[in-house]
């Protein structure tokens, strides 16, 4: 079976580097599945899960803020933060989800509201990825 090389890199270092058979990521315009031999593409990523399909298994990673660069034999995901499901600190994600919810309840000015919304989205994404609930 054909495979494609996937790299996930963040400013704090590489997170993932392996051969997979298919990558599914959430881009700004919707979900995008990449198979080996895809034409070179660049797309911004939303806050969401990246699914890395190998023969029988699927690995999950939570990414936020970044973009995806595709070449025929290689996919690079550049994200401001990215964690594999196994590396996610569940307690921390739950804590920040709680904090964000409290901020949304407080109804502060618009900037804070937007930031809290994003923080909540990131936290929920992490929790979902951790639980494999995609």
């Amino acid at each position: 079976m054909q495979t494609i090389k996937v790299n996930i890199v963040t400013p704090d270092g590489p997170v993932y580097d392996s051969e997979v058979s298919m990558v599914i990521a959430v881009t700004a315009t919707g979900e995008m599945g990449i198979l080996p031999g895809h034409i070179p593409t660049v797309a911004p990523l939303g806050i969401g899960a990246v699914r890395l399909k190998k023969d029988n298994s699927t690995e999950l990673a939570a990414v936020s803020g970044g973009f995806l660069e595709v070449r025929p034999d290689k996919v690079t995901i550049l994200a401001q933060s990215a964690e594999l499901a196994t590396d996610i600190d569940l307690a921390r994600a739950q804590e920040s989800a709680r904090r964000a919810e409290a901020m949304l309840q407080a109804h502060k000015d618009e900037v804070d509201f937007k930031r809290a919304e994003l923080a909540l989205k990131r936290a929920m994404n992490r929790i979902n990825v951790y639980e494999g609930n995609i």
Partner: peptide
């Protein structure tokens, strides 16, 4: 450099 498709 490869020439990319840009989405969107």
């Amino acid at each position: 450099t490869a020439s990319y498709e840009f989405d969107p």
